[in-house]
Simulated assay, not measured.
Amino acid sequence: MTKIFAHRGSAGTYPENTMISFKEATHVGADGIELDVQLTKDGTVVVIHDETVDRTTDGKGWVKDFTYRQLRRLNANYKFKQYGSCPIPTLEEVLEWGKETSLLFNIELKNSLIFYEGLEEKTIELVRFFGMEDRVIFSSFNHESMATCHQLAPAIETALLYMEKLHKPWQYAKTLHASALHPYHPTVDRYFVEMAHRHQLSVRPFTINKEEQMKKMFADGVDGIFTDFPEKAIRLRDQ
């Protein structure tokens, strides 16, 4: 059965990448959550998607230029003002909470635009500290970073994120020891899924928000989808 990952939590109805959004994903019965990590100026692994705080908080500037204490003062409630103050969480905070759930965790390393020295090591250290190696998937558009993660922690699954159609991506994934492909959904069809499965690779496309897209992905037999609307996806899947 296709697993439903709540993209940045239940980001269609709650402020993305916040604890309230992640908790809503468990409330509606998602199989997993997807979240993004970056490093603060003082080396804390924080959960935020954009390289700047401008879009999702009431602040301005680059994540890398804030200390964690400074970041924590910002309100990340984005377009959902009705939920009051929502601080930017640390990865430690999310995993400490998540350990007590049955969720899978897709941790996307946001290190394509900015090179965060030590991001892989610090993220792996936290996953190991909470003993969650078997419930975590690392993903990134930075495929070199995924190769590094595999080298440092071969027991933790790595997945390649990408936008454009690739030639035989299942062969490319094997060269990086990745165990999953996370493609942009228009590049996926039934043949793609069959070939990936033949090469022992999981397929989890992003970001699937429309009902017809969800139905197509379920019919194509993908292993998981990332969606901003997990409740809707679960209802459709279980029908």
Rank of each mutant, 00 (worst) to 15 (best):
E93R: 01
K79Q: 11
D65L: 01
L71A: 05
C86S: 12
I88S: 02
L95W: 04
Q70A: 13
E93G: 01
Q82R: 15
W97T: 03
P87Q: 07
C86H: 13
K60I: 12
E96Q: 13
A76M: 02
Q70T: 12
F66K: 06
G98R: 02
A76W: 01
C86P: 10
Q70F: 15
L95D: 01
G98I: 00
G61M: 00
P89I: 04
F66Y: 15
E93L: 01
F80D: 00
R69H: 15
Q82V: 07
K81W: 15
V94Y: 04
K60Y: 14
G61W: 01
L95K: 04
L95E: 00
Y83V: 12
Y68L: 01
L74E: 07
Q70H: 15
V63R: 03
T67M: 06
L74P: 11
L71H: 04
Q70V: 07
R72W: 13
G98Q: 00
T90G: 03
K64I: 01
L95C: 02
P87K: 03
W97D: 01
Y78W: 15
W62S: 10
Y78G: 02
I88E: 01
G84K: 06
W97P: 05
S85M: 12
G84P: 11
G84L: 08
C86R: 13
Q82A: 12
Y78N: 13
S85K: 15
R72G: 10
R69N: 15
L91W: 03
R73M: 11
N75W: 13
E93C: 04
K60V: 13
G61F: 00
G84N: 12
G61R: 00
E92Y: 14
W97R: 02
D65R: 06
E93T: 02
K64T: 05
W62P: 09
R69S: 14
E92L: 06
Q70G: 06
T67V: 03
L95H: 07
L95V: 04
D65A: 02
E92C: 08
D65S: 08
N77H: 14
S85W: 15
T67P: 12
D65N: 10
E93A: 00
V63Y: 05
V63T: 05
Y83E: 07
I88P: 11
F66R: 03
W62D: 10
F66T: 07
F80S: 03
F66H: 12
L74T: 11
P87T: 08
P87Y: 14
C86D: 07
S85R: 15
T90V: 08
N77E: 08
E93W: 08
N75F: 14
L95I: 02
L74N: 12
P89A: 02
G98D: 00
D65W: 03
K79E: 08
P89R: 01
L95R: 01
F80M: 04
R72P: 12
R69P: 11
Y78C: 07
Y68W: 11
P87G: 11
K79C: 06
K81N: 14
L74K: 13
P89D: 08
K79F: 15
Y83P: 13
Y83M: 07
I88T: 07
Q82M: 09
A76N: 09
R73F: 10
K60L: 09
C86G: 10
L71C: 03
S85L: 13
C86Q: 15
T90M: 09
Y83W: 15
F66A: 07
E92W: 10
V63F: 03
R69L: 14
